[in-house]
Design a protein around this nucleic acid. Structure first.
Lengths: 209, 209
DNA sequence: TTCCATTTGGAAAATGTATTCCACTTCAGT
DNA sequence: ACTGAAGTGGAATACATTTTCCAAATGGAA
C-alpha cells in the first residue's frame, strides 16, 4: 500500500486552515458553499483548494469522517441499552444534537444530495443496530408491532427538516418536533404495507437540485 | 383600475400551452425547472416565455392560485367540523394529498424558498382557522395543552419532507409519516416555551439556495 | 389587400459557479 | 547560498442558467 507522502510544512498549514475555514462556513451556510468563498475566507487561492481537495467529496470526507464515527459510536452505545426504547430515543437525540451544531453536518447525515461513501457505510453499520433495538422495543411492548426501521429513519428526516427550516430563528424548535416524532412512533397505527428496508438508503439519498 | 388588455388569439394559445407544459414539468421536477426546458417542451422560444411571465413569480401565480384557493377552502371546511380534531386531521390530510399530486405544488405550499405573496396570504387566512381548531381540540381534551399552531405547521413540514424524499420510490410512505405526526401531536408533552406564532411564517419561508 | 402593432424564435450578453492552468514563489536538502 | 521539487495565487476557461434584445413573422382591423 502506497503511503500518502507527507506534505510540506507550509502546505500542511494551509490544508488545516482550509479545513477549519470550510468547517465554519459549512456550519452556517451548508455543504454547498462555493469553493471560492472558502478559499477567500482562508486567504488562499483556489489553486490551493483544488490541489488539496480535487473533489468536494474529498473535502467532506476530511471534514466530517470523525463526526460520522461519533454517530456510529452512538448507535453502538444505544444498542447496549437494557431499555430498548430508551436506547432509541437517546440515539436519535444525540444524532440530532450533533446535527444542530452544524447545518453542513446535518445535510450530510441526511444526505441532501452529496451522499458520500462515508455516510453510506455509516448507515450500513447503524441500520442493523437500530433494527435490533426496534425489534426489542416491540417485543417489550414499548412500540406497536408494525413499526419498522424505515419509520425510524423517516422520523429522523422529519425532525431534521424542521431543524433546517427553523435553525435561523428558532434554534430549539426541533426538540418539539423530536418529541412529536417519538410520541408518534409509540402511538401510531401505521397504515399500508411495511416498507422494504432498502427504502432507508434511498430515503437518505435523494438527489435533487 | 386598468384592464388586463386581452391577448391576441395566437398569443393566448401559446400562453395556455406554456402553462400546461410548465405544470407538467413542475409536477415531476419541482419549481426550479429551467425556463428554457419549459419553452423547449412547449415548442416555443424563450422570448415568449419571458414576455408572458417576466418573473418566475408570475408563472407560479398563474399556475397555482387555483390550487391555493382549494387549500384555503379546505381550511374553511375544516373549521366548521363539530369534532375539532377530526377537522384538523382531515385538513392536513387533504392538503398533503394535493401536494402528493405535484412536487411543484408541494414545494410552493411549504415554500422551499419561492414564497409568493399568494402563499403568504393563504397562510394569513388559514392560520387563524387552524389556531381556532387547535384551541377547540385542546378544550375538548383531544389535544394536550401546550400544542400550538406552530407545532401543527411543523407537522406539515415534517410529513412534507418525507414526501419529497420518497416520492420517487415509495409514493405512499408519507401516509405513515402523517400518521406518526398526528399521533405525536396527540400524545406529546412538548418541551420548551410555546413558540411565538410569527414563527409559522418563517417556517414556511426559509430561503436557502 | 394593406398595414402595423403584437408576437415570435433564438442568438447574445449577463450571471454565478466550477475547474483548469501556469508563471511565479517558497521550502528544505545540500 | 543554491537549486529543483512542491506549492501558490489568481486569471482564464468552461458550464449552466437567466435575462435581454431585435429582425422577422403573424393576426386581424380597415
Amino acid at each position: 500500500m502506497t503511503e500518502p507522502a507527507p506534505l510540506r510544512r507550509d502546505a500542511e498549514r494551509n490544508r488545516q486552515l482550509l479545513l477549519r475555514t470550510a468547517y465554519e462556513l459549512m456550519a452556517s451556510a451548508g455543504l454547498d458553499v462555493p469553493y471560492e468563498d472558502i478559499a477567500r475566507a482562508a486567504g488562499t487561492g483556489m489553486g490551493t483548494m483544488y490541489r488539496r481537495f480535487p473533489h468536494r467529496q474529498d473535502l467532506l470526507d476530511a471534514l466530517f469522517s470523525e463526526h460520522i464515527d461519533t454517530v456510529i459510536d452512538f448507535a453502538e452505545q444505544a444498542s447496549r441499552y437494557d431499555d430498548a426504547w430508551a436506547g432509541l430515543t437517546w440515539f436519535l437525540e444525540q444524532q440530532l444534537e450533533i446535527e444542530a451544531q452544524s447545518r453542513g453536518l446535518g445535510e450530510l447525515l441526511r444526505s441532501r444530495n452529496q451522499a458520500t461513501a462515508l455516510v453510506q457505510r455509516a448507515h450500513e453499520r447503524m441500520t442493523p443496530l437500530v433494527a435490533g433495538l426496534i425489534a426489542r422495543a416491540v417485543r417489550a411492548g414499548q412500540l406497536p408491532a408494525g413499526v419498522t426501521p424505515v419509520d425510524f429513519a423517516a422520523a429522523h428526516v422529519m425532525v431534521g427538516s424542521v431543524m433546517d427550516a427553523s435553525r435561523a430563528f428558532a434554534p430549539q424548535l426541533w426538540r418539539r418536533a423530536l418529541t412529536i416524532a417519538l410520541a408518534g412512533l409509540r402511538h401510531a397505527e401505521l397504515p399500508g404495507d411495511p416498507p422494504d428496508e432498502t427504502v432507508i438508503d434511498r430515503l437518505y439519498n435523494d438527489q435533487k437540485k
